[in-house]
Design a protein around this nucleic acid. Structure first.
Lengths: 189, 189
DNA sequence: TGGCTCATGTAATCTGTTACATGATTCT
DNA sequence: AGAATCATGTAACAGATTACATGAGCCA
């Protein structure tokens, strides 16, 4: 079966839990999956068509009022495909932080610029952490209802631990930079 | 100037520190930059040509023995371009962890599979952490020699803090999974 | 009536990797 | 002698985003 793109499995995984439209899949990607996987409509809709051609999903056209929806349901073959993928080893975990790039090359500009990048990063992480903690607490309340909830919780706690570490690092990084400012001769007072 | 791709700035940033060949740039990407930014020759060499056309870098062909090298040096315009980019706000920090994807959808297969993914992840991180700690200590020894070293140290400590948090999470995650195994009725003894 | 969200889709474009091709040098 | 590393490059392909196009329903 070669190496299909990950998008296939993300969609199959979401549909394994419940039937959905492309629009709803996008919303999931922006919320729970958001911090470790993203996608745009431009990749979701075409993939949904491919999966339908491969008979991994089936389509039900519904009319919700006058609005028409295309709801997709996973087939047994689709589930098999998903399971096969789950058994395969992970190919790649990738982190691409432009913030780190700007810090790394920061000696080519003022430290105040670098400091601003750290502060913006800190704020962004702080906001996302609030969201993750809210997810954690709501998942803990429904943990016994479904097996999948523990799996979701696992990824959420990953995000929380990671983001907390980021915030600790931010403080430390700001400290190191301000020490350099002092060391450079411009001691105040 | 519109929005050039990040690769341009990574190369300019590296060349701002010292002149290098494409091959050496690749090596830097695989080592120090490795954990937060990667690239292949297929993107390095063409970018180097583009930068030369834009006159952000100049080329010196050298013969190191019989082996020919193309060493690139950043120009003042290249430095300006780099500095302009450093002033711009960060556009995107992206984390794409297939491991988390497999955990998230793990309820569609045996927990033993999920456990294996966590263990492999743990091992990979443990190995990379050793490398980062070695980098940290060598950077600390040369910290006073150059301003840039503090910047490098900042990114390295980011990696260390993050990876340590990952490892803590791994233990917690394995615990949660084993508790579920017990809860599912198959209590040993 | 106007703006937001729901809802689906495509074409152009961008960015990057993979696989291939080539050849010298250095190490064992 | 053979393997690994040094060194440069390209063509085909893959994967995804962006911008655009379209239109209905809902809320104030």
């Amino acid at each position: 079966m070669a190496n299909s793109k990950k998008m296939d499995f993300v969609i199959l995984g979401l549909l394994a839990h419940e039937s959905m439209t492309g629009y709803e899949i996008k919303k999931r990607m922006d919320t729970i999956l958001g911090f470790f996987w993203n996608a745009s409509y431009g990749s979701i809709y075409p993939t949904l068509n491919e999966l339908q051609n491969k008979q991994y999903v089936t389509l039900q056209e519904e009319k919700d009022g006058g609005r028409e929806k295309k709801s997709y349901t996973i087939t047994p073959e689709g589930k098999e495909c998903l399971e096969r993928w789950l058994h395969l080893p992970v190919e790649k975990d990738e982190l691409r932080y432009e913030t780190l790039l700007k810090l790394f090359f920061g000696s080519n500009t003022d430290d105040s610029i670098t400091l601003q990048h750290i502060e913006k990063f800190e704020e962004k992480i702080r906001n996302q952490l609030v969201v993750l903690i809210a997810m954690e607490s709501s998942l803990q309340h429904v943990l016994s209802e479904e097996d999948a909830h523990l799996n979701y919780l696992l990824t959420v706690t990953f995000g929380i631990k990671t983001y907390e570490a980021y915030l600790t690092w931010c403080i430390q990084a700001k400290n190191l930079l301000s020490k350099r400012a002092q060391g450079n001769g411009k001691v105040i007072n």
